[in-house]
Amino acid sequence: MSDMEPLLAAEGVGHVYAGGQLGCADVSFQLYPGEILGVVGESGSGKSTLLACLSGAIRPEMGQVRFDVGRQGLRDVYALSEPERRMLMRTEWGMVHQNPRDGLRMNVSAGGNVGERMMNVGARHYGQIRTEALDWLNRVEIAPERIDHLPRTFSGGMQQRVQIARILVSKPRLVFMDEPTGGLDVSVQARLLDLLRGLVRDLGVAAVVVTHDLAVVRLLSDRLMVMQGGRVVETGLTDRVLDDPQHPYSQLLVSSVLQA
């Protein structure tokens, strides 16, 4: 691990919204290839602001976000030119939104959604795009005969799986997930998590997973960051933090989960 270059490095990242509302402050961490970092905390704790800062959506007012662009070493994401950053978002990065409507083109078929990233980088062979799209729909357990159906004819869980296929098809090195199982019922959640865990492990993708659901991070993430009031209050290996929380807020969070 020590001779490995980090994939993503945040250094003192902080953002204050117009009007003085604190989004997040002084967040630092390093993410290595293939590693999954969970970010938990209650609503308003700055999780989503942090994710937006990391994923290129909001330029943080303080600190730096650096990414190993094109395996050429760490570069400040916000110092990249806009076309470079957009290219990064469409190729080496992926974003799984909580609401699949934000991540899918709802008026384009499932196959078209999955094929878009290939076409973005110059795929111009219909047959190959289709074969690849079928393969990916199969990997997220969507029946091949549904390839030409619009996402709105799919259930919430299926939409979420199409969204995942759409991103993973470009073999990204880093995926950001914002409440990937939010709004799904528990049995669907369990299957989706199982699927995600398998895919992410197979591909060796690194991920930052933001959620308020401790079960999600327990299953997916290697390391955990607990946030409160825009700041990181505790970090550590996931099992360590969940089984032996040190910070009072972490203890509260862990003890708040109902044991079924």
């Binding site: 806009e82 076309p83 957009r86 083109r105 384009v108 078929s109 196959g111 078209g112 094929g115 878009e116 990233r117 076409m119 973005n120 980088v121 110059g122 795929a123 111009r124 219909y126 795009i129 289709r130 390839i147 030409d148």
Partner: peptide
Amino acid sequence: RKMHAYAEYGLMHVKLYEDIAR
């Protein structure tokens, strides 16, 4: 305008893909 400026024309092919698929 950004799509033209950066020559990001993948979306145009998504439209053609949809035509062929349907």
